[in-house]
Design a binder for these strands. Structure first.
Lengths: 213, 213
DNA sequence: AGGCCCAGATGACGCCCCGTCACGATTTCA
DNA sequence: TGAAATCGTGACGGGGCGTCATCTGGGCCT
């Protein structure tokens, strides 16, 4: 099938848009990210080496360093990517929330759904017991934390809820969500509703009991 | 000052008890542990190498591997050591506790005191932003978790509190304690009372709101 | 005391991964 | 089309890794 008839004027092949240099650049970057996800999944983060990642892409070892400085930086990039995809979801929950309870329920539910989705891409084939480092505070992840912080502040003030130590409270909420989320992923079948309900109730129950500084 | 007069019969020097072989063995093991603590503190866990650790002890590189298989194993040994020292403290709190509230308050208070104490040995000189991996589930650490679990079960049953998802609940409590504890260490002055009060109230408030399966 | 044995300390060694860099191929631009 | 810029390439020096043949000296026996 020739496509000349369809693109007669500019014989621009469909992959020729932004200049070849630029295109191979994004392709390489993406290839490295994909390879890294797979390698981390198979070998675990600790055991994985830059060589493992680059080998899987077919690129030369030097090429890796044109894009990332180290294994850590690739991991951060993957984490950043996750955070970047999650942020608008969180933002949407924050916008449509009426009060603290609806915000919290929406946010945790969204986070757990997100977790369940991500889950697939990672635990491919990893020997049990292997563990990932907790994501470092990359800019995008920090932004998510800040967003939570801000949403808490906004929505709690709007509720005329008495002041609490927001720093402690946000940290505690994130901790509960993270830990209950992890445990949720270990159970079969995965019960997002149940886990979310648990986390929400625990936080919601704890809030009015907090000390007022 | 001669001590001949004081130990006239058996010229047993005070460090000659269990045979020299055994003594240098425990000394070496301890030296490696001490060096590791210092190196992790100065360089951070990621950057530290087995060579850094062994160099600081003055021993030969091969000797290290007579005691530990890797940097990870030394770290685990240090974590295990901490857990081993904390366990009796936790046990004491569990024993003297009347109800869930007093147990929780005692345990968290003990944990935060412990944290503050440990704090010194670690953050010696480390560049900010560096971070330690969360301790792996070494046997001794697992034992602490199990102890918490068991204490929760015992004390909640004794309270005739309605059943809750203990797995989620214990995980959430540990998460709150860990995270609020970390934040506590970042503030000056360190306010153990305030942090413990916060964590206790949050958990205590959340408990009655939990779903009953 | 003298001698034998073996636990365990030693450090050189080969392996592999690291990050760099000079080179060459390919794209871009004039 | 030729010059310049960009970037992929893989060889290379550096260094940490874990091992192992060798040596040392403590334990133990006569």
């Amino acid at each position: 099938m020739s496509n000349i008839a369809y693109f007669p004027v500019r014989p621009t092949t469909d992959d020729a848009r932004p200049g070849k240099r630029e295109r191979t650049k994004v392709a390489n970057r993406q290839a490295i990210l994909d390879a890294a996800r797979a390698v981390f999944g198979e070998l675990g983060y600790e055991a994985a080496t830059v060589r493992d990642i680059i080998r899987r892409t077919g690129l030369a070892s030097g090429t890796f360093y044109n894009y990332y400085k180290s294994k850590e930086e690739v991991f951060d990039a993957l984490a950043d990517d996750g955070a970047r995809r999650f942020r608008p979801i969180l933002r949407a929950e924050s916008d449509k929330a009426i009060d603290f309870e609806s915000f919290l329920r929406g946010a945790i539910r969204a986070y757990f759904d997100f977790l369940e989705g991500e889950h697939e891409s990672w635990r491919i084939n990893r020997p049990a017991g292997e563990v990932f480092p907790h994501a470092r505070a990359t800019p995008e992840i920090q932004a998510v934390f800040d967003e939570v912080h801000a949403a808490f502040a906004k929505v709690l003030e709007h509720d005329h809820a008495p002041a609490v130590d927001l720093d402690y409270f946000a940290a505690a909420c994130i901790a509960v969500a993270r830990e209950v989320g992890d445990k949720m992923l270990e159970r079969r079948p995965i019960d997002v509703d149940g886990a979310a309900d648990f986390a929400v109730r625990m936080i919601l129950g704890g809030l009015p009991a907090l000390p007022r500084p």
